[in-house]
């Protein structure tokens, strides 16, 4: 009882001592803090090194999202690639947790250090694919999902992906 009372008094003292310490506040917007490249801000969709959309519409970001603010629909392009017919993020719900980036198997969805996205109209916080898709590769420069994956697309036949042998000749009986 007395001990806990002392502890409370010590707490009061400690807090009181902070009267003489400097404030840690960075005075944004006059002062801009350094934000690391992996800071979690506005979400973008990136392109692979060949300039094609990275997103394959696998839906993993959508299911990882704790506030369910990502919706998309898959489509298949003529060259065999999967792509999102639409890709929508409701930033008025987004909590910038980065789960989508973590879930993304193709490094398509990435969070950027831009967090300044205030709007007077909430509807303007709904970003469609044309708002999200950027021209670069973002943080991961070399990854190209289709060079690793076994799916055949135009320009990459079966057996041409990373570590793949040429297709088996089914009619051969050689050992």
């Amino acid at each position: 009882m007395l001990g806990s009372l002392l502890s409370q008094l010590r707490t009061l003292g400690t807090v009181l001592r902070h009267t003489f310490t400097r404030a840690e506040t960075v005075e944004y917007p006059e002062q801009k803090p350094y934000l690391a490249p992996r800071y979690r801000g506005r979400i973008v969709l990136t392109r692979d090194p060949d300039g094609d959309e990275r997103c394959v519409a696998c839906n993993l970001c959508a299911v990882a999202c704790p506030v369910d603010c990502i919706a998309l629909q898959q489509g298949v392009r003529e060259d065999g690639r999967w792509y999102p017919e639409f890709f929508r993020i409701n930033f008025s719900r987004c909590i910038m947790c980065g789960m989508c980036e973590e879930a993304c198997p193709t490094a398509a969805i990435q969070l950027t250090p831009d967090f300044e996205m205030c709007e007077y109209d909430r509807q303007s916080m709904v970003y469609e694919k044309e708002h999200l898709l950027i021209d670069g590769t973002g943080k991961y420069h070399d990854y190209n999902f289709y060079r690793v994956s076994g799916l055949q697309i135009f320009g990459k036949d079966k057996g041409e992906a990373l570590d793949e042998e040429p297709p088996v000749d089914v009619k051969s009986l050689l050992p």
Binding site: V15, L16, H18, T19, T21, R22, A23, E24, T25, E27
Partner: peptide
Amino acid sequence: LGIWQDRY
């Protein structure tokens, strides 16, 4: 409170 919590 700001002063005691090292902010403004």
